[in-house]
Simulated assay, not measured.
Amino acid sequence: MYATSTEPYGADPFTLAYLETTPDNGKRHEIIDGVLFVSPAPGRDHQRALLRLAQTLEIVRPDGPEVLPGPYEYRPTDERSLQPDLLVLSPDDANPAYTDNPLLVVEIISPSTRLIDLHLKRNVYLEAGLTSYWIFEPEALVLTVLELENEQYAERTFTGDEVFEATLPFPVQVVPAELTRSRLA
C-alpha cells in the first residue's frame, strides 16, 4: 500500500471531498486522518477469497442484513473513509453512497495492505466501535476474528480446516482453507 503526503498539492490534509473529485483509476483510495492511502488492485487469491466468503455469508444471510463485497465506502467519522473488502450492512442502513455503521467488516490481506489492515485499520475500527471485524490471510489460510467486548477486541484465530462458528452478524460456518480453493466441493 502506498501512502501519499497528507497535503494534496501542498495545501491542507486530504478530506472526503477530495475523494469525490478523484477519477476512478482501478485502485483503492482511503483517507484516515488526512492521509491518503492508495493500494493496487488485489490478486487472484484475494479475489477468490472475497467471492467465497461473500457466497458463504449470502447463502445463510437472514432477511434484513445485506452482504456487500467491496470496495464499498465505510465512513466511521467525517475524517475517515475506508473501503473494506466485504461488509455486512444493517437493514436500516439506507444510504446508497456509503455506510457509517456496518454489522461486519472483512479485510483480506494482500502484501501491499498487510500492515494497514492488521494495525491501522484495526485501531480505526475499534475506535469506531465496530462490533465485528474479520481479517483473512489467504497465503497462511488464517482467519482472525475480532469481536467487541468491553470496548476492546476479543481475538480468536482459525487456521486451515478449522471451523469458525460465527454468531455475529448472524450464524454462519467459515472454514479458512475453503476460501481459496478454486472450486467448492
Rank of each mutant, 00 (worst) to 15 (best):
E7L: 13
A3C: 02
P8M: 11
L118P: 00
R122V: 12
P23C: 14
P65Q: 09
P91Q: 09
G64P: 03
L86Y: 03
F170W: 04
T56V: 15
A17I: 02
E162N: 02
G160E: 07
T157M: 14
R114F: 12
Y74Q: 01
E162C: 04
E149F: 09
P8D: 12
A128T: 04
A97E: 09
I135A: 02
V88H: 05
A41Y: 13
Y133E: 02
R28W: 11
D33V: 01
L126A: 10
L50A: 12
V174Y: 12
L89P: 07
E7V: 00
S5N: 10
P23G: 12
A177S: 15
S182P: 00
V174M: 13
Y153G: 08
N95K: 04
I108F: 05
W134T: 12
T56F: 01
Y2A: 09
E147F: 06
P84L: 12
A94E: 13
L120Y: 00
A49T: 06
I59W: 06
V88A: 07
T99S: 15
N150M: 09
S110L: 03
F164R: 01
V38Y: 10
L146D: 02
D33F: 07
E155C: 12
S81I: 03
G26Y: 12
S132D: 05
D93C: 10
P176D: 07
Y98C: 12
V105P: 00
S90W: 04
L68I: 15
L87I: 08
W134F: 13
I109D: 04
L184A: 15
T99M: 08
I116W: 08
N101K: 15
P91I: 11
R181S: 08
I59Y: 06
E178C: 06
R80T: 13
V124R: 03
L146G: 02
L168S: 10
F14T: 03
Y153Q: 08
I59G: 00
D63E: 15
P169D: 06
D12I: 03
T4Q: 10
R183L: 14
G160C: 08
A49E: 05
V145M: 05
M1E: 11
E178K: 14
G34I: 09
L104H: 01
P84H: 04
D85G: 11
I31L: 08
Q55G: 11
T6K: 07
R181D: 05
R122W: 07
G160A: 06
D92R: 13
Q83G: 14
Q83V: 02
D24K: 07
